[in-house]
Design a protein around this nucleic acid. Structure first.
Lengths: 230, 230
DNA sequence: ACAAAAGTGTTCCCTATACACCCATGG
DNA sequence: CCATGGGTGTATAGGGAACACTTTTGT
């Protein structure tokens, strides 16, 4: 330690996954207003200021560029290949979060973005920088995460049907789930409170019982970890 | 993106875990030659140069400061709290690795270190910076890792007894294991090849059969992941 | 009455866990 | 012959996986 101190810049990037019952999993992207990669889609993010923590920086950039406010982001990985940014050496610390898409329908492009938009993760545009790489890693992480920690609390309405929860898990796992086994498992975890309400009908079919998460139990399971083999 | 570009420096730190049959798990630490934290123990590491990748940087620093060469390091986490370094804003990308202690008995303190030493993770000295925090996170990570990926290949001699492997797992998991169940599990995974050799005696006791890792199978399990519930 | 979606129970198998005695060697 | 460490098998329980029919509603 000691000799040179090269000039390397530090940025943060945010992968915000949104979930919506009918739409599935989306990612929030911005269209870049400036070079490099002007008019390309990219992850929101930007330079870390000297006095702020990394997490503060992501939240700030997210707010500035997309107008959305996220409470908790988790660090994903740090990308630092020498040529990943054409301008200069930049290393980027990526963070990710999971939100309910419907809470953020009013996206406002701002400082460095000319547009902000949700993209279903099955239909992504071409991305600037190495952001495809970053996004892939984030998707991989979220898939793994679902298997050892409960998800859904922040992603569904307060009251939801079992089918809603099932769809959510199928979106994240990317495959089908047996309804009966899933229900048994979930009930066994005691994560859900059964309500005395029934869904209004949307077309044909038997109405479904409504549930809500048991917050205390949910948070306990987040700490302890679950083994979600289904 | 765009406005200011604050001057933040980027460092890498290395957590090198060493394993030795009789000693258990150790970490490689250096005694700092310069301020800040002169004469404190700390993780080896240093500034990233402008043209090198993060991984290259860790390897280089490790070699410079401790004389050891490590082939593969895995990124752990990036630490970036504003006040974590008293000099200036520094963010540090931490990497960790697992090596066989016996391969590195000749440690040579060099550039920034006045001493280099293995410390058993049960008997750690006080560390400078936020390195205790970093180390704790690394230990946590390694514990988790053992449970979904095989370890040992790089840590044991080519030929080893079942007891050796068992001790290794007990070190990492930090608890006892049932010998019989462990053996069944390992054999079931087909990770080991049984040899036609028996250990020479070291004191009393029945000689033990020797094994070696089945490299192909081992690597396959690394990719696929195992669920090591024992 | 039919289509659509929700609710429910059983069987099987596999794996984790608990547990105790015999065997080969050195001293 | 005894202390030390290595090697082996069995019984039980719990959870994951596969699987099909009934119920309620809208049309």
């Amino acid at each position: 330690m000691g000799k040179k101190q090269p000039s390397i810049s530090v940025t943060v990037d945010a992968i915000v996954f949104g979930y919506e019952k009918n739409e599935g999993v989306s990612v929030l992207l911005i269209k870049r207003k400036y070079e490099p990669f002007k008019d390309s889609w990219a992850l929101p993010g930007g330079f870390v200021q000297e006095e702020e923590s990394l997490e503060t920086a992501v939240k700030r950039e997210l707010q500035e560029e997309t107008g959305i406010k996220v409470n908790y982001l988790e660090q994903l990985y740090t990308f630092g290949a020498p040529q990943r940014d054409p301008r200069q050496r930049i290393i980027s610390v990526a963070y990710w979060a999971l939100v309910k898409t419907s809470l953020f329908v009013e996206l406002k492009a701002d400082t460095d973005a000319s547009q902000v938009q949700w993209f279903n993760i099955e239909k992504l545009p071409k991305l600037g920088f190495d952001h495809k790489l970053i996004l892939d890693k984030a998707i991989q992480r979220i898939r793994a995460k679902v298997r050892y920690e409960p998800v859904g609390f922040e992603l569904l309405d307060k009251k939801f049907s079992f089918a809603d929860l099932e769809k959510l898990y199928m979106s994240f796992l990317g495959r089908d789930i047996d309804r009966r086994n899933f229900r048994k498992k979930m009930m066994g975890l005691k994560m859900l409170d059964e309500l005395d309400e029934w869904s209004k009908s949307e077309g044909a079919g038997r109405p479904s019982k409504m549930f809500r998460f048991n917050k205390a139990r949910y948070e306990q399971l987040q700490k302890e970890g679950i083994l979600f083999e289904i």
